[in-house]
Amino acid sequence: MTAQATVATQEPAPDRLRAPVGRLLRAELRWIFRRPRTLVVLGLLTVLPVITGVAVDLTANGGAAPATGGPGPDGPGGEPPIFVTMATSAFVLPLGSLMTLLMLLLPLTVAMAAGDALAGEQSHGALRGWLLAPVARGRLLVVKAVGVLVVALVAATLVVASGFVTGLVLAGADNLASMSGTELSLGEVLGRLVVAIAWATLYLMAVGAVALAISASTEHPMLVVVSVLGGLIVSGVLLQISALDWLHPYLLPQSLGSLVDLIRDPVATGGLGEGAFRALCYLVIGMSLAYARLTTRDG
């Protein structure tokens, strides 16, 4: 039943001590994306931007919309207020959805993957095989971390892509205005969306690294998810307390707001850079803890 069992048996004799990482990775990924819960949560992540877009679009164009004065070029029943127009554009909708989902649902997805990666396998007894297999602990961690990374990347990409397509359908390709009032070309928008995906992936990977560290120390995947969500919620609460502002730079969700800067023109890179750096710090902490825990773990 476990992936490594096949790996170990297929291994030719002279190379016994080194299983090729590529094959391990493929096995790990196949494993992750076969789990129904991964697919369900990814599907949910794809649908949410669509729901947001359609809901906002309906409130804007429906009868309940407050009619503003000027006759708009589009929309026979009067122009929708800007906020709404912008929220459904193929530029703002993906970024807005990404920002909203980055608060809880995307970290939850990553935490789930990380929880399954070590704690989950441990609870099934599958990790024991990994630990006994001719795979160094460091490489085992790399394989698991890449698995989490792929989940983060796929999840972020799905959210952005689904938001982008929804925006294109709802508002068309010619309504790509930045918050500073400048029109952006489709290419520029795509470029920024790619930056957003990369940034979000790094952020999620920071969450994932911490989750992996917890995952390496327990055999209850539920505990991983709970601690990560709990940590995020506590951070969120602490961020609301202005008396603790000296603490805020140490909290990962502090950098979430800087994603808005991608809607500004020109893009202010300061906040995004700082957020990326903060995520890297968390990544280093999480991975080193996970490594330490995994190397001392007995089969």
């Binding site: 730079p249 750096f277 710090c281 902490i285 080193s288």
Partner: peptide, 23 residues
């Protein structure tokens, strides 16, 4: 065990140092 302690210790030090830098 030593390796683990070194890895954990240095990783945490580097990470916290970086965070302190942003603060």
């Amino acid at each position: 065990r030593t390796k683990a302690l070194v890895a954990a210790g240095s990783g945490i030090a580097v990470g916290l140092g970086g965070l302190a830098l942003t603060a």
